[in-house]
Amino acid sequence: MRILLVEDDPILGDGIKSGLLQDHYNVDWLTDGGQASQALQTDSYDLLLLDLNLPVKSGIDILKQIRKTGNALPVLILTARDATEDRIKGLDMGADDYLTKPFDLDELLARIRALLRRSKGRTTPTLTHGELELNPVEHTLSMSNKPVDLSPVEFQLLQLLLENRGRVFPKKQMEDNIYGWNKEVDSNAIEVHIHHLRKKLGNDLIRTIRGVGYVIDKQ
């Protein structure tokens, strides 16, 4: 899951990013509205964590920009102002949820999970596919009710494919989604992880489309 965090406060941004990394999200952190607006145009994200009070371009303006292009990206706004009008304005401009600073990190993460779940059209927290059951909250996977051990990257890859069943993912897009543009990635990293997943879960689950990417078919 790739999340864009826009927060101008250095310590808070660093803290939220660390918290998100602990839950194995892939986080891009930007500190001003101008950069954020640029990134939203060039990259695809699963969720936007947006501070309203930003330099260069305000959070409200970024929201307007996203919604004007018909982008349904889940947006959670963070605001230090407890003024209700700010929150109402944010929600009216198309934000899906809000949190007032100072907030609880666990609550922030729970809200992010709920927003992601909803955006993928699910109401239950777990993803099931045949004998497979993936729990994004507890980061657990079970096959035929027996736990399967996965590395964080393997888990994210599987979750990404399960949430987008029937859709073919190009390798590049998967890299972006898992690693973001912060890290150097080996050119065959995705292939290696897919290989490990196939070893653990069987060869039939993930299908390779040559020259394009990977897909988990709908049942």
Partner: peptide, 11 residues
């Protein structure tokens, strides 16, 4: 600053 302290402490 309070939000940042709390978040970092929870991390």
């Amino acid at each position: 600053p309070l939000a940042s302290i709390k978040t970092q402490a929870q991390v």
